[in-house]
Design a protein around this nucleic acid. Structure first.
Length: 877
RNA sequence: GGGCGUGUAGCUCAGCGGAAGAGCACUCGGUUUACACCCGAGCGGUCGCAGGUUCGAACCCUGUCGCGCCCA
């Protein structure tokens, strides 16, 4: 029987990794083989993630790419660990954004939605969704997202709409949904109410105008930033204890321009320090004024329509609010009623988070969710540990917010969305209709015109997507979901709403066990990416240039929990370099016969170098596992990067060359070690960089796919501390020799004869060949003359290296090198002596610390002696 | 105004009680047959400032200044 060739025939790797050519094909193969399709009937433990649904008309931006990289890494690892993994994708209908987009398209045809009518308009939106709605899903495939495409959902689906109607009815019946007339945030451009979190506040330049109301000793000066709303004033308010105004409280003053007399009321909420201490009260156009109005039973006069145009008969009628403001001020000035004007005056102004239009507080009838009991449950679930927030610092913010929630305005004056299932009938009858109920028919019954906030339906996502309200196998298997991942800026949007609804609908069962909150994407200098700055980076560009793996790796490497991450093209190039490095290392290993055809030989048959790298690998596996459990993606990536590049490539591969050159059994065992280390390393890297590892691993092992390969476990072997010490000794020796060569101006490739003396004493005899190989040092030949000697202090002794540089050495360079080393050793010596000379230190510090310092002192002193001796032998420069 | 976070190498960030680290950038030298998307060697920091606790502080405490975010 002939010996088997050590390197079996294997498909050869191309010389370079070309992601653009390969990624799409790999991805489609994974999908076709059904790797990402979850089985609700499997016996495996479940692991589930629902994708926080992106806008149906959006496209993949860097924030998505980061979040998806996180979710994909988590779910790929769990799949390899033998979990039944469900990562469920989908999109939300983005009520305002989508309706606006379609209205804009219609406008270019000269048609408004009202021309079309509600039914036809909604049809158009569905058509629009068919056209653009798949874009972001396609982009997810490029990134490599291992989602279950058989379960892709949309918030306007029939099933999800049923969930919406079910929960609306349940909340309505429980008294947690009600209708009320209040001040809401109105966007005059979007023409709809918004909830509080859809309003962004910024400090804008405005004006502060002081206006005199009334006459003579019955007059009072109020300060306002919104003079035009005075047309709707129904009171002037002062603080009850403000001595300046005691005589006016309870009297009436005239509101200029209107001829109307309004009462002066005393209210605790007026700040006597602000302006004159008196404020005008416009209950229909200011949330604080509305509350004052409630307390004092004041009428509310609406002076603007939904577009922000003045509706009061007279000279201002029809003017836009921003035109009306100066017009009103001018009219007041003419009457001599302007006491003071301050411009610019910075104050906080609310803007629509969709379109940036200045919000108009408006009195209007809307539907509300009473959040207090829901929010209390949401806080409790985190407090008692059913749900854990990562990083924990952000839990505080979660509590603060949840405990101070106002009721949630859920009705929107749109056509695109879930229509409110409430019918109004004769005699003010109101009926809320559940999913299997017939709406009331007959004369006089009409359905509410409004639709629900998009977040109302996406808040149901963790269970509506699994089939709720039906008790499906999916729901039983995959709820509660394992992890929800999103940016910390979305904490209040997704997380809180999903928590409130999940706990409510699922009998106190939390929607997710863990919440992972990643940071926000910024540019290379930490600035927010934005269209106006033009500093945005498109993840698709990165994928084109550097590959999906490099894009993912860059994002994960920067993902420190709770902190933002700065990105620049160089970062992605660096990650691409890493994938190339991995590619080349594997190519080298394969070219030298690396394989996993047989188990590793017993550790006793391996070399120090083999045991060292295997022990490091064990440590790496332990580290990666621990950091995965802690959502520390940056540490995972860093550990893998450093092992791959700084240990495996820089040292093990170089040392393996020596072992392979030995031939025979040694070469064979080295090929196995190479194969086994790479095999496990590729498995560990797969959740982060699935594409390149798939190609390398299938080539190395002949296995079917890394997607379904087993996640590696540490070997359990006792780490060989002696092997580690010896290899570290080799590394130090090699580094010192290289430094000497470099300082002496030797070309890296130039071979130099040399002798290594004293290797025995430090137990390195067996590794001298490796040192020679890595430093281009040849055996001392016949005419060997040591022109220089080099002392390297290692644990346990000093190794002397003699080199024949065939001629004079560069004394200046050598003196400089030694002087530098001397200075370092002296500094070290002084530091250690200082500590040891301190009686308090030796008395109070733990014994092992004292011993360590003692050891350092001895080493430093020996170094100083050696270097001085060496310097003495050098001729003067 | 309230709360949270953060100031470490030129840039972006790790480290969070016992010898100042990484990536990128920079300098020098390299056609060492895995890799120039690379290899080897180097330069670069009183860890914002001021006090305090401790045998010992980048790390803990207090104050202060700068920056960022969230909520009013």
């Amino acid at each position: 029987m002939t010996e088997k060739p050590s390197a079996p025939q294997r498909p050869e790797l191309p010389p370079a990794w070309n992601p653009a050519e390969v990624e799409a094909g790999l991805y489609e193969r994974w999908v076709e083989r059904g790797y990402f399709t979850a089985d609700a009937n499997s016996d495996k433990p479940p692991f589930s993630i629902v994708l926080p649904p992106p806008n149906v008309n959006g496209s993949l931006h860097m924030g998505h790419a980061l979040n998806h990289s996180v979710m994909d890494a988590l779910s790929r690892r769990r799949r390899m660990q033998g979990y039944e993994v469900l990562w469920l994708p989908g999109t939300d209908h983005a009520g305002i954004a989508t309706q606006t987009a379609v209205e804009r398209a219609l406008a270019s045809e000269g048609v408004s939605r009202h021309d079309l009518g509600r039914e036809k308009f909604v049809e158009r939106v569905w058509e629009w969704r068919e056209e653009v709605g798949g874009r972001i899903l396609g982009q997810m495939r490029r990134l490599g997202d291992g989602v279950d495409w058989s379960r892709v959902r949309f918030t306007m689906d029939e099933g999800l709409s049923r969930s919406v109607q079910t929960i609306f009815k349940k909340l309505f019946d429980d008294g947690l949904i009600y209708r009320a007339e209040r001040i809401i945030n109105w966007c005059p451009r979007c023409q709809t109410a918004l909830s509080d979190i859809e309003v962004d506040h910024s400090d804008d330049d405005g004006e502060l105008v002081s206006i005199r109301y009334g006459e003579g000793d019955r007059s009072i000066v109020v300060a306002t930033t919104r003079a035009e709303t005075m047309l709707g004033d129904t009171a002037v308010a002062v603080h009850p204890e403000d001595e300046r105004y005691q005589h006016l409280i309870g009297t009436d003053v005239e509101v200029p321009l209107t001829g109307r007399f309004v009462p002066v009321v005393a209210d605790e909420h007026v700040d006597p320090e602000f302006g004159t201490g008196a404020v005008k009260v416009t209950p229909a156009h200011d949330p604080n004024d509305f509350e004052i109005g409630q307390r004092h039973d004041l009428p509310a006069i609406t002076v603007m329509d939904g577009r922000g145009n003045i509706t009061v008969k007279g000279p201002f009628e029809g003017l836009d609010r921003f035109e009306a403001r100066p017009a009103v001020v001018a009219a007041l000035r003419e009457q001599g009623r302007i006491v003071a004007e301050k411009r610019p005056y910075q104050h906080s102004v609310g803007h629509c988070s969709r379109c940036d239009t200045v919000i108009e507080p408006r009195l209007s009838m809307q539907w509300w969710v009473k959040v207090e009991p829901l929010a209390r449950a949401a806080a409790e679930a985190v407090r008692d540990g059913r749900t854990t927030i990562h990083p924990p610092e952000l839990a505080k913010r979660y509590f603060d917010w949840v405990e101070n929630l106002n009721d949630w305005c859920i009705s929107r004056q749109l056509w695109w969305g879930h229509r409110i299932p409430v019918w109004y009938g004769p005699n003010d009858k109101i009926v809320c209709v559940g999913p299997d109920e017939e709406p009331p028919s007959g004369e006089g019954w009409t359905q509410d015109e409004d639709v629900l906030d998009t977040w109302f339906s996406s808040g149901l996502w963790p269970f509506s997507t699994l089939g709720w309200p039906a008790q499906t196998a999916d729901l039983a298997k995959f709820y509660p979901t394992s992890v929800l991942s999103t940016g910390y800026d979305i904490l209040f949007f997704w997380v809180v709403r999903m928590m409130m609804f999940g706990l409510y609908a699922m009998d106190g069962k939390q929607p997710f066990d863990h919440v992972f909150l990643h940071g926000l994407i910024r540019d290379a200098h930490g600035k927010k990416m934005s269209k106006s700055r033009g500093n945005g980076i498109d993840p698709l560009d990165w994928m084109d240039s550097y590959g999906a793996d490099a894009t993912r790796f860059t994002l994960l490497r920067g993902a420190n929990p709770g902190s933002d991450l700065a990105l620049a093209e160089e970062w992605a190039a660096g990650s691409r370099n890493f994938t190339t490095k991995l590619w080349n290392a594997t190519r080298f290993a394969l070219g030298n016969g690396a394989n996993v055809e047989r188990p590793l030989p017993d550790r006793s048959e391996l070399t120090d170098v083999d045991r060292w790298v295997l022990d490091l690998l064990d440590g790496l596996i332990t580290e990666v596992d621990a950091q995965f459990e802690a959502f520390q993606f940056s540490r995972i990536s860093d550990a893998l990067y450093k092992f791959t590049w700084d240990e495996f490539c820089d040292w093990y591969l170089e040392l393996a060359k020596v072992q392979i050159a030995e031939g025979g059994e040694r070469a064979e065992s080295t090929r196995l070690v190479l194969g086994h280390v790479l095999d496990k390393l590729l498995r560990l890297l797969h959740p982060l960089t699935p594409f390149v590892t798939e190609v390398l691993w299938t080539t190395l092992t002949g296995g079917e796919s890394l997607v379904v390969a087993e996640w590696p476990a540490a070997s359990g072997a006792q780490a060989d501390a002696d092997a580690a010490r010896r290899v570290e000794g080799v590394k130090k020796l090699v580094t010192e020799i290289r430094r000497f060569r470099s300082d002496q101006g030797l070309k890296p490739g130039q071979k130099v004869g040399g002798a290594v003396l004293g290797a025995d004493e430090v137990d390195l005899a067996g590794l001298v060949e490796s040192v020679r190989s890595l430093t281009r040092m040849t055996e001392p030949g016949d005419g060997f003359t040591a022109s220089v000697s080099l002392d390297v202090g290692l644990t346990g002794g000093t190794v002397k290296v003699e080199l024949d540089l065939s001629g004079a050495i560069d004394v200046v360079a050598e003196r400089k090198r030694l002087t530098k080393d001397l200075a370092a050793a002296q500094k070290e010596q002084a530091q250690c002596q200082g500590k040891l000379g301190n009686a308090a230190f030796t008395a109070k510090a733990p014994a092992d610390v004292v011993a360590k310092i003692q050891g350092r002192l001895e080493a430093a002193s020996a170094d100083i002696e050696r270097i001085n001796a060496r310097l003495a032998t050098l001729p003067e420069a």
